[in-house]
Design a protein around this nucleic acid. Structure first.
Lengths: 159, 159
DNA sequence: CACGATTAAGTTGTGCACAACTAAGTTGTG
DNA sequence: CACAACTTAGTTGTGCACAACTTAATCGTG
């Protein structure tokens, strides 16, 4: 599709590369998971639970499950039990919305706000573990976002 | 740690970026999963099962579970049931090694070899879905590999 | 040779991801 | 207004990932 290169035909190299990329991607995602597991152990949160709390901490107002799912790219099949566990841990409260009774809004409890303080050092330890320069981090994020967009579009097209 | 940039102090930007990266990384990994799910549906394989078959197809000889786990960065807790499902599907056979009876070697059956042909077009459809240029694919793979290495090293250091 | 340490695979339990489905509420249109 | 289409959560079932543990075989050292 693009540039010349001697050792392999572009086509073959791209195939191999794509292979290695999805491979590396999974490996990297799991490696991140491991580092977060360590960093979050004391808080009693898993990584996806932490992500959900981040979304909730971001806004002062309670947020519907739908909105959380859109931010995290997760459906209710994943979020419902996750949020129930956060509720069981006392970090959030779930209530049917008054305006639209289909919707359930999730609110951070006082304990959940308290946890926020203790979670503050987490991003720094992750950043340190990642070992990326600011430059590389920007490049990587950009590529990942474009990649996800393409993949989602391709998948939507298949259906 | 590196270059100048006005809007945010480097430090704060790096924190935010790392956040977004692990976020994008998970999103991209899951998006890949979705595309593979479609591509592999007809073969009756999940994405991790496909990866295991790739490792087995790569070598003519049967491979011990250990070796597969090292290639895929997975432990027996994940691989044992996965390989059992592949065996139930008739794609592989598992036998205790004669030399070392602790070890179980996994062999591709005739049906498993047959599937190989049908799996040939998969990488191409994935490459198309990724929408990456050869250049970007190389950059991405490089960054992901460095990232995983750093994360693994950091985690090993924690323990 | 004996026996503790190590290694390989498997098992169990917890949690995430997602497809397929259900239940209940809301909206749009005739 | 009635009712079909849609939306939002939740449930169920399957599979992956991983920690902690068990079992059985092998290795190393005295």
């Amino acid at each position: 599709m693009t540039a010349p290169h001697p050792p392999l035909p572009d086509d073959a190299e791209l195939l191999r590369l794509d292979h290695q990329i999805c491979f590396s991607l999974h490996a990297a995602a799991r490696a991140f998971g491991g580092v977060y597991r360590d960093a979050l152990k004391d808080l009693g949160l898993t990584y996806p639970q932490y992500l959900a709390m981040l979304v909730l901490w971001e806004e002062p107002d309670p947020q519907p499950v739908k909105a959380i799912g859109e931010r995290l790219r997760l459906d209710s099949g994943t979020l419902s039990p996750l949020l129930k566990r956060l509720e069981a841990a006392g970090l959030v409260a779930r209530e049917r919305s008054a305006e639209d009774e289909r919707s359930v809004v999730v609110r951070v409890t006082e304990a959940g706000e308290g946890l926020r303080e203790r979670a503050l050092p987490v991003p720094r330890s992750i950043a340190a573990a990642s070992g990326l320069s600011l430059q590389d981090a920007r490049t990587l994020r950009g590529l990942l976002e474009r990649l996800t967009e393409s993949l989602d579009a391709a998948q939507a097209g298949e259906r």
